[in-house]
């Protein structure tokens, strides 16, 4: 079957099998491999993309169902595919600034789901963030820094600026929020 879709700003027209999953069409057909696959039961959310303004697990949609739609993947979220982090979406920036990723396999889906979550709820509580991302699994971070990243991105998208990040640029501006270590001495 013939499908036409706009993916990350480019229009593609292709022949696909009726059974081809959108996620396979994106990856194998269009070479948009920034969106990974983590399961076969639509449980993990790694393959989340934006279809016509809504976040969708691309393994739960057939390519033919996406005919005529406009799709944004993680690769189309930032302004440019180069080393210039100033073009990143605030959610992408926040995931780095708050160490919201380790191996990074869940990250594309986590970021795409967050973008959608913050559109629907620009001022989520920590609890609302946790429940809002329930459909996206991460095995590395324990979610705590993901939650921080999402709250920070929300603040930035509201125009209130990001929350203080975790990292330290240089010795002269150590503003880290990391826990202080105490040199262990004799107990009190």
């Amino acid at each position: 079957m013939r499908v036409r879709m706009k993916v990350d700003g480019v229009t593609y027209e292709d022949e696909v099998q009726p059974r081809t999953l959108l996620t396979h069409h994106l990856r194998d057909g269009l070479g948009r491999v920034g969106t990974p696959i983590g399961c076969d039961t639509s449980s993990c959310g790694a393959c989340t993309v934006d279809i016509d303004g809504e976040s969708v697990k691309s393994c739960s949609v057939l390519a033919v169902q996406a005919d005529g739609s406009t799709i944004t993947t993680i690769q189309g979220l930032s302004g440019a595919e180069n080393g210039d982090s100033s073009t990143w979406h605030p959610v992408q920036k926040a995931f780095q600034e708050h160490h919201g990723l380790q191996c990074g396999y869940c990250t594309p889906g986590m970021i795409m789901a967050t973008v959608d979550l913050l559109k629907r709820n620009p001022s989520p509580s920590e609890d609302e963030v946790r429940h809002g991302l329930e459909g996206n699994l991460c095995r590395c971070t324990g979610y705590q820094n993901i939650v921080k990243a999402v709250l920070s991105a929300a603040s930035e998208l509201r125009g209130e600026g990001p929350l203080p990040g975790s990292f330290q640029d240089a010795p002269e501006n150590d503003t880290a929020q990391t826990p202080a270590a105490e040199t262990a001495g004799a107990p009190a």
């Binding site: 979220l77 992408q92 780095q96 330290q168």
Partner: peptide, 15 residues
Amino acid sequence: RGRRRKEDAKLVTGQ
């Protein structure tokens, strides 16, 4: 020092 991760650029942009 809590350095930003060099790994992140490719991971958050899908590259």
